[in-house]
Write a protein that binds this DNA or RNA. Sequence first.
DNA 1: TGTTGACCTTCCAGTAACTGGAGGCCCTAT
DNA 2: ATAGGGCCTCCAGTTACTGGAAGGTCAACA
Lengths: 139, 139
Amino acid sequence: MNIGDVADLSGLPAKTIRYYEDIGLVEPLRSSNGYRSFRQSDVHKLAFLARARALGFTIEDCRSLLKLYADTDRASAEVKQIAEEHLDRIDSKIAELTEMRATLSHLVDACAGDHRPDCPILADLAMEQKAGSISKASG
Amino acid sequence: MNIGDVADLSGLPAKTIRYYEDIGLVEPLRSSNGYRSFRQSDVHKLAFLARARALGFTIEDCRSLLKLYADTDRASAEVKQIAEEHLDRIDSKIAELTEMRATLSHLVDACAGDHRPDCPILADLAMEQKAGSISKASG
DNA sequence: TGTTGACCTTCCAGTAACTGGAGGCCCTAT
DNA sequence: ATAGGGCCTCCAGTTACTGGAAGGTCAACA
């Protein structure tokens, strides 16, 4: 199977598949004309990668997961740990974004958004650290 | 003021401040010894940047916001628009992460996480597109 | 006066995970 | 023969920094 077919099947761009080969995630064969030749197992692996990436696992996570997937004797605990760590990262990110959202939404609501120059958003951004003791206290 | 002092005041690493100069966000003066010499207005600007970046505005957003900030005649609507677009991006990101979180958390809950090899997480990741018509339908 | 040591400088390279593009070969159809 | 599409490699760019090497500057101290 050529890269275009595999791209269609896995949902990954051909560029990305080549990249995944570069970094050693897949190792397709080569045809005599130099074209990459993908086996069914390669397609399966790429679909696995597409799914894991869509769930936000990093490439290095994916590498670990693929190893664990290939090892039929692995303990599910190992996989679960990777997933739980990822879940924690997701939770942190959501919390961070939610806080940003709250602040920003507050500012947006406070801004008239008209032709006049007064803008609470800029005012907040420009807010000076009056006390001086605020910013670098516990860095 | 030297870069170290400004770093302390703004909360930004010196490296980052140099980078901001590289990309034209600040233009500190230079002392005779070649050291960067920051005015109060530079410090103010950097604090503005630190705050905006903490709220997740991109560098290009920051560039626009700084321009608008410098222009005392701007309409608050312009600022509000940037902020609202950013708010939308945040909302999308939160939605995406929340969906990931739900799926992943479901899988983690389903996984025993013990010494046995059965693992619903890997099973899901490896899930084959049986129908074949699923993946590339509306690309 | 010499020498630490902290602070500053520039420049280069690397991060994560691709993406875009140039230049060129391969294959099929007309 | 020629047109087109698919494939190849290699290089560069993306975002927003961050780390490190090699070296200049400055204040303090013996």
